[in-house]
C-alpha cells in the first residue's frame, strides 16, 4: 500500500502474559476502540511502528506528485490541466496532514524528510513507474488512487487519533481523484481507435503494479498480526487486493478494456474474481531500488529540498528580524 510491509521491530506477536500492567491497560483500551492520543502513554514499539507507517504514507503522497507533475504542462486541455493541478495540490496536502500526524509522535519534520532522502524509509513501490503518456494520468487516478482509497477507508477507524483524523480528511478528497482518472479513461475509450489503444496500453502497464501496491500476502506476517492487534492495520493485504479487483474489473469492462491477466475469471461460487499469479520478484526489485524511476524520484525530491533551503532560511531570518523590531518598538 502507501505504507508497504511495515516493520514492527518485533519477532513475535506480544501476548497478554508478556505485557506489563501498563501495556495490558493500553491493549484493553485499543480493544474497546478508545483512540490513543499523542500525550497518552503507549508502548515504544507501537510508537515506532506508527512513525514508520505514517512516514511511509506521507512520503508516498509527496513522491506520488512527481509522475503526475510530469504531465501538467502537456495536459490536453486547460480544463484537464486545472483539474490535474488541483489533484496534485491535494496530494501535497495529504503529505502535510500525514507528516503532522507523525510529528505528534515526537519526531521532527526535517528528520522525516532526511530519512526519505537517505533512503532509510521507503515510499510506495507504485511511484517508481514512469508516466509515458496522458492515458497514464487517467490510469493512475482510476487505479492507483482507487487502490489507495481501498486501504485508507478502513484506516479512518485506526487506533491512533491523529492518524485516523488525517485519514478522514484524505478520504473525503480522494474520491475526486479516482473519478477524474476514470473520466480521462472514459474520454479516451470513447475517442479514436488510437486513443482507445493508449488507454488499453496504460491499463496493461498499470494493472499489475497496482495489485502489487497492496503488498505480498501477509497471512503469515508477524508484523501484520501485531499491527492488527494494535488496530493500525485493519484488513489483510489479500483482503484489500481482492476488494480492489472485484470493484475494478467491472469498471474495465464498462470502458471496453481488457484486464491484462489471462487467468482472470469470475468465480460464481465465491462471488469473487480469481487472478493469475503476481510477479513478486518485480515488486521486491522495485523495493530494493531497481524500479524504472527510483533514482530519478529521489534525485528530484532532493533537488527541490536543497533548492528551497535558502528560502526556508530567509523566511525564518525575516520572521526573527520582524519580531525583534516589534519587541523593540514595544519597549
Amino acid at each position: 500500500m502507501y505504507a508497504q510491509m511495515v516493520d514492527t521491530g518485533l519477532n513475535k506477536v506480544v501476548d497478554a502474559s508478556q505485557m506489563s500492567p501498563q501495556e495490558q491497560a493500553f491493549q484493553a483500551r485499543i480493544d474497546a476502540d478508545v483512540k490513543v492520543e499523542p500525550r497518552d502513554w503507549m508502548p515504544e514499539a507501537y510508537r515506532r511502528t506508527l512513525v514508520r507507517q505514517i512516514q511511509q504514507h506521507a512520503h508516498s503522497e509527496v513522491v506520488g506528485q512527481l509522475p503526475e507533475g510530469n504531465w501538467v504542462t502537456r495536459a490536453p486541455t486547460l480544463k484537464r490541466k486545472a483539474i490535474l493541478m488541483a489533484k496534485i495540490q491535494d496530494e501535497a496536502g495529504h503529505g502535510l496532514y500525514l507528516y503532522s500526524a507523525a510529528e505528534t509522535l515526537g519526531v521532527s519534520r526535517d528528520d522525516l524528510i532526511d530519512d526519505l532522502h537517505a533512503g532509510k524509509v521507503k515510499y510506495s513501490s507504485i511511484f517508481n513507474y514512469p508516466t509515458l503518456n496522458w492515458a497514464d494520468i487517467g490510469a493512475i487516478g482510476w487505479l492507483v488512487d482507487g487502490a489507495a482509497i481501498m486501504n485508507q477507508i478502513p484506516l479512518c477507524r485506526c487506533s491512533y487519533g491523529p492518524y485516523a483524523r488525517a485519514m478522514v480528511r484524505i478520504c473525503k478528497e480522494e474520491s475526486f481523484h479516482q473519478r477524474q482518472g476514470f473520466d480521462i479513461m472514459m474520454a479516451m475509450c470513447r475517442g479514436s481507435a488510437d486513443q482507445k489503444a493508449m488507454a488499453q496500453d496504460a491499463l496493461d502497464r498499470w494493472w499489475w503494479p497496482s495489485l502489487m501496491m497492496f503488498g505480498p500476502s501477509d497471512a503469515e506476517s508477524v508484523h501484520s498480526a501485531q499491527s492488527m492487534r494494535w488496530k493500525i492495520k485493519l484488513l489483510s493485504n489479500d483482503e484489500l487486493r481482492q476488494r480492489f479487483v472485484d470493484q475494478t474489473v467491472p469498471q474495465a469492462e464498462y470502458l471496453g478494456l481488457r484486464v491484462p491477466d489471462p487467468a482472470l475469471r469470475w468465480n460464481a461460487q465465491s462471488g469473487h474474481y480469481e487472478t493469475g499469479p503476481i510477479d513478486w520478484a518485480e515488486f521486491q526489485a522495485v523495493l530494493r531500488g531497481h524500479g524504472p524511476c527510483n533514482r530519478d524520484r529521489i534525485r528530484v525530491r532532493k533537488e527541490a529540498w536543497d533548492d528551497g533551503q535558502w528560502v526556508r532560511e530567509a523566511a525564518m531570518a525575516h520572521a526573527r528580524k520582524r519580531a525583534e523590531r516589534e519587541s523593540r518598538a514595544a519597549a
Partner: peptide, 8 residues
Amino acid sequence: AGSLHASD
C-alpha cells in the same frame, strides 16, 4: 482542523 509549519 490540523497543523502546519510556517515562519510567521
